[in-house]
């Protein structure tokens, strides 16, 4: 396959030392109160929802860092802040040394944009239904002014379609003519069209059937090896994450409770919430056996519990957990925010 144009491993940047992505004390607070007039008339106070609280992590070049958590954990909000769809309330995202919120670096940030792309959850919503596939895939090429020559754009689009194992002739069709899996391939082709090095994947396979999911996950791994990509992979599915990630961060109610290399998390989960999640995952090997159900559900993020947010559901909760918020304790490559782990109780 002639992929000369597409395949340009990002060597220019690979030489730079340090992590590619650095997230510092990232916080996002949403105003979820009712409209101003209604609120004033009812005399109701403003309601704030802390979707992401004081989150810090780093992503090294060419690794896959996964954020896992249940609904309401804030993992998708992190993804949106990292690609710049949402401005953080506090904290910052730094990519390749360039802060994404420093107004003085606007020019550097514009250049950086080409190197960051996103793959979305719902392939039925992420492609403009009124655009032909070739126009969709070419949009980043034109937007970043990589080439304005129509013949070159066309050649590049067909190479990209081949790269994601679609027929270049498919470019003349509209998105509705494709299945979910084929659409996600088109979305991947679009994400790759401007030669990015960092791709944020927000639940890229959770809308797909399992056999299609396998095709897409395999494709994403192949592309990572071939093009030297770095992934931030958001998912609620631990089995998928196990297959994709090099390092994993577990989120609960907007906070990171544990960050560790993938192997460590699955072999020795430390935080009680991580343990619970692992126990709750249905597994094929379990045919006929019972998995361990956990009590309770994720609390309302508008009024999170004081102290450790997990304490109402935690079997190891002690007095300290109810009042004092645990901070991340780093041991080697593992970081855990849990009093019980810190005190050696578990």
């Amino acid at each position: 396959m002639s992929t000369a144009i597409v395949e340009q491993p990002n060597e220019v940047f690979a030489g730079t030392a340090g992590p590619l992505v650095k997230v510092d004390h990232l916080t996002c607070v949403f105003d979820v109160s009712r409209p101003w007039l209604e609120r004033t008339l009812a005399g109701a106070p403003k309601q704030m929802l802390t979707a992401v609280a004081d989150l810090s992590f780093e992503i090294a070049r060419r690794e896959t860092f996964a954020l896992v958590g249940e609904s309401g954990s804030g993992k998708s909000t992190v993804a949106r802040m990292v690609v710049g769809l949402l401005s953080p309330t506090a904290g910052q995202v730094t990519i390749d040394g360039v802060s994404m919120s420093d107004p003085r670096l606007a020019a550097a940030r514009e250049k950086l944009r080409r190197r960051i792309q996103m793959i979305f959850q719902d392939p039925f919503a992420s492609l403009n239904p009124r655009w032909r596939v070739d126009r969709i895939v070419a949009e980043p090429i034109r937007a970043f002014g990589i080439t304005r020559n129509d013949a070159e754009v066309e050649a590049r689009v067909s190479e990209l379609l081949k790269l994601v194992r679609l027929d270049p002739a498919d470019g003349r069709k509209y998105p509705h003519e494709f299945s979910g899996g084929q659409r996600q391939r088109i979305a991947i082709a679009r994400a790759l069209s401007a030669n990015p090095e960092f791709i944020v994947c927000d639940e890229p396979t959770s809308a797909l059937d399992v056999s299609v999911q396998a095709q897409i996950l395999n494709l994403m791994r192949d592309l990572q090896d071939r093009l030297g990509l770095t992934y931030l992979f958001i998912s609620h599915n631990l089995a998928v994450v196990r297959h994709m990630a090099t390092r994993i961060g577990v989120m609960y109610l907007g906070r990171l409770v544990e960050v560790a290399p993938a192997r460590d998390i699955f072999a020795h989960p430390r935080h009680p919430y991580t343990r619970m999640l692992l126990d709750a995952v249905p597994d094929l090997a379990m045919a006929g056996r019972q998995r361990k159900p956990v009590d309770g559900e994720t609390p309302n993020p508008i009024a999170p519990p004081p102290g450790c947010p997990f304490h109402p559901r935690c079997p190891f909760a002690a007095e300290r957990c109810r009042t004092e918020r645990p901070h991340a304790i780093v041991t080697g490559s593992v970081s855990v925010a849990c009093h019980a782990v810190e005190e050696g109780r578990i």
């Binding site: 399992v210 999911q213 996950l217 196990r242």
Partner: peptide, 24 residues
Amino acid sequence: QGLMGSIPTLTATAERLTQIPGSM
């Protein structure tokens, strides 16, 4: 067989998932 192979599990560490070519 293909369907079972394409399901990622917590225990298996295979690099690639089995995939069924084509689509429904």
